[in-house]
Amino acid sequence: MSTIITTHSLTKSYGDRTVVDGLDLRVPEGCVYGFVGPNGAGKSTTMKMLLSLVRPTRGEVRVMGRRMDRSTRRELLGSIGSLIETPPAYAHLTGAENMRLVQRLLRLGDGRVDRAVRTVRLQDHLDKRVRAYSLGMKQRLGIAMALAREPRLLVLDEPANGLDPAGIDEMRHLIKRLADDGITVMVSSHLLDEVDRTATVLGILGGGRLLFQGTRDELFSRSVPDVLIDTSEPERAAAATEPWGGTLDEGTVRVPGLDHPATAEVVARLVDARVDVYGVRREDRSLEDVFMDLTRGRGL
């Protein structure tokens, strides 16, 4: 599968503070790329660099096979729709006037504008001033304004931020519809749950660094859940497994980061110590747990 966005060692520093640190992103064409990380992880800055709104301190961005910089951005941006940080739109104008403004600016035909508005299902609200729109409607209008140019790539920065559960669900469906139409969607969120069900590829950012990039299944397979051991003498068992980082957790011994051979070693050690082993299991972990571990710096 070809990549639509590639970055090499993409870095942004403000003085001594590095907010994005050596990112090597690979966004496959046609995917929904979930760009996830806590607030302040560097997602918006990265997305701004992808659009050349912010110039990198180091590294480069390639979009659709071409280097994205101030000399090329105007050409490339013709195929990229975006919604960065808060939704755009002129509050004193109606939705229709905002769309007409984009139409005039980009010299687009009526058909494109109508399609964009219908895609976000805003056709019945165009005569209202944007000031009277709900946040969800503003987000949808912002996306319609980005879609009117019929982009190959759509970059959405936290589009579900501040929406109620129904709005979040609607946004998910919209992203799915856009992806079904063949648009590559890069969507960021500070909550994995918001993009987990729509993203086909995940990029997880923490402290400005790319902690993981791949599919949901790859993320699961590369994570090593803690081993939980039930024994006759939990305290002695915890002491015996201390060299592996074992701790007592509500009567169960918890040992992090063990692969299969190390698990066998730990069990053998307990048997040697004459501790009765009742059960050994891996902790059940949700994708959210894996994400939280990653972004708290525990690693996979």
Partner: peptide, 18 residues
Amino acid sequence: RAEHEGGNRNALMARPVS
């Protein structure tokens, strides 16, 4: 003034307009 509100400045500069 309107360009400094919300995401308008981002949108203004993220369009294929010089």
